[in-house]
Write a protein that binds this DNA or RNA. Structure first.
Lengths: 220, 220
DNA sequence: ACTTGTTTGTGAACGATTTCACATGGGCAC
DNA sequence: GTGCCCATGTGAAATCGTTCACAAACAAGT
């Protein structure tokens, strides 16, 4: 909702989101052999305006060369450092059900440095068993085991009814970043950052679009 | 990005999103026995301002009674009609892999009227077999079978590399609403509405928050 | 019926984000 | 070294979204 303080200035939520896009484009450009790239080219690939690209980047520093553009590899690394994707993160996943299992197997997470290293569930039949090489721990030990493993990010993939409860334990465990797949609004301590992945809401947006005959670009 | 024309006026993207939230709250309120609800109460439950709630709703009509508030059941139904969740939708899922399987089993979709009635994959070993009661069709028949089944919404859960290709077939099949789980920007015809579920990007947002020591509320 | 209290609906003010437009400065050719 | 070209970086303007503040309207009580 409100902008995010970084240092003194404030970044727009949307800027961070676009940064993720830039990062992906830069990786692609590097593969394609580009040495430098202009804000125009970068913008075209993401259907944005060149001005937007320059504003976004200039917020974090002066990465380009006038008359030339941005050095691809270098910018890629700088964006990566800003996003924190130049390091690996220790991730715990709570709820090894339908969705949870899929997320454990989701290659892209680990490929980008998000390593799921702990699994939790409340089902006695699952606890103690292995899932894709990881043992499933009892959710009742969340707080302790999260601390021991030095978990930095937690993914909540439990039924909505117990999500808040799980959330509270995770917070007690000192985790400051949470990705929530349960479709409820969770109460979080002031120093915890939570992102919601509300899949049903995206479908509702689509049905809204269909009912109201929204077209194409206007819908994203 | 840009606002969405509904009739003549334009709705903000964020308004639609909040409408989904209101709908959920209204369902809960109805269960709790509320007959009417004020914008203040509604706002509190979603951590918004009363003015925001009134602006959002007033965009679509005049649903409340001054001095009293909004009639819960009636408003719930009106919001539902606006969102298109008062009807059922025929959904196809392409890519019965890790994520795809999880989505088929995701109860909340069907509970809200989004019925996955067709599955597609390109893996010969899967084609023809049953998955949760649905037969898996050959992705090469996408266009035809989608038309035959009268599919209205498609979910793309295939590897990024083939997502665009699948997208094109879906568009040929006449589907106007797409939920995309592949982490690439897809080119879509002007009259197709696409929503992206980029899970890695949410994690990147979290790692950004951790690196930059963003706190709590500022992060959502 | 009149008055009082409450809450909606909305124009106007405000704040945030995007786009514009141009001065600035580096590369490159001669 | 000089001059031209080009793309960045950035204030200023425009657009978009949120909040404020209040008039209008309805309910309830007397």
């Amino acid at each position: 909702m409100c902008p995010i303080p970084v240092g003194i200035k404030r970044v727009a939520e949307s800027t961070i989101h676009r940064l993720s896009h830039y990062w992906r484009v830069l990786i692609a450009l590097e593969k394609e052999g580009y040495k430098t790239v202009s804000s125009r080219e970068l913008a075209q690939r993401e259907k944005l305006t060149p001005a937007q690209v320059r504003k976004d980047l200039s917020f974090f520093g002066s990465f380009g060369t006038r008359g030339l553009g941005y050095p691809v590899t270098q910018l890629k690394e700088q964006v990566s450092a800003i996003l924190g994707t130049n390091q690996t993160w220790r991730v715990a996943l709570v709820g090894v059900g339908n969705m949870g299992s899929a997320l454990v197997g989701y290659k892209e997470f680990s490929r980008q440095g998000f390593n799921i290293i702990k699994l939790f569930d409340n089902d006695q039949r699952k606890i103690g068993s292995f899932h894709k090489g990881l043992i499933i721990s009892d959710v009742r030990n969340l707080e302790v085991e999260i601390k021991q493993a030095g978990i930095e990010i937690a993914i909540i993939a439990v039924p909505s009814a117990v999500a808040q409860q799980v959330m509270d334990e995770i917070a007690k465990g000192g985790v400051k970043a949470i990705l929530n797949f349960a479709s409820v609004k969770l109460k979080v301590p002031g120093d915890v950052c939570i992102r919601n992945e509300h899949m049903s809401m995206e479908l509702e947006h689509l049905s809204f679009a269909l009912v109201n005959k929204i077209t194409g670009k206007q819908c994203e």
